[in-house]
Amino acid sequence: MKTVIRLLPVLGLALSTAVAQDPPAAQEPDLVLGKKVYLQSCVVCHGISGKGDGIVAGNLLVKPRNFTDGRFKVRMTPNGKVPLDSDLYRTINRGMGHDNAMPAWANLKVDEKNAVVAYIKTFAPKKFARQDRAKEIVIPPRTAATVESIAEGEKWFTAIQCGKCHGETGRGDGVSAPTLVDSWGYKIVPPDLSKPWLFIGGSEPVDLYRTLRTGLTGSAMPTVDGTLTEDQTWDLVNFLDYNFIRPGRSVPR
C-alpha cells in the first residue's frame, strides 16, 4: 500500500506529461510569437522564407523541409493531403529520427510550439486553406501480433516487394535503393528497417501503421493505402515490428 501511495505522485506526473504532450485546444494563433520562435530556432535550416534554404542547408544531405509547397511527410491525413496542426506539433516536438538534422523541440514551451506551427503554415497559405478537408485517418485497434498475423505480414512484405527498395532482409540495400530521389530532386535513402532510430515518423506500431497508411509525402516511400486493407496493414506492421524493429521477442500464440 505504501508503495502505491508513493507511486501516486509519480503516476500523476506521468499523466500530466502525457497531457502536456497533447497540443491544447486551438485558440487564436500567435503569429508574432511564432515568427520569433521561427527566427530563433528554425531559420538556419528552413530559411527566412521557409524554402528550406537556410544557411546550413547547403551542408545537409537530407535537406530541411521546404514549407512553401505544403508537402509534409509525417501525417495522420491521407496520402498527399496537408498535415493537421497536431501532426506538425508532434513532428516538432519529437523531431524526425536520427538520420537527418531535424531536432526534437520538446524544450520549447507548448504555446511556442503552437505558435511556430501556425507560423510555418503561413508559408503555404493556399495549401493550408485546404486543411479543413484533410481528414484524419482512423486507426483501428491493432491486430494481435500472433504467429499467423506475422506470417501474413511477411507475405505482404514479399508480395508488395518492399524489398525492391528496402532490400530482402530490410537492410536498405534493395536494387532500386541507389537511384531513389525525393520530390524535390534530392537523393533519398531507404532506412535499414532494423534501425528504428532512423525512422522519421517513429517506430511504435501505431507510427508504423500511420506511415504505411498515409505514406511519407515528398519522399520515395509509397503508401499501401489502396493496396492493403486495414487488417492487412496491421499484419504488415506486426511483421515489421517482430522481424526487424524489435526482433527476438517471443510471439504470443
Binding site: V43, V44, G47, I48, S49, G54, I55
Partner: peptide, 9 residues
C-alpha cells in the same frame, strides 16, 4: 545577419 536568397549571411 541572415539574408534570404542568394546571399545567405
Amino acid at each position: 545577419r541572415l539574408f534570404d536568397g542568394f546571399l545567405k549571411s
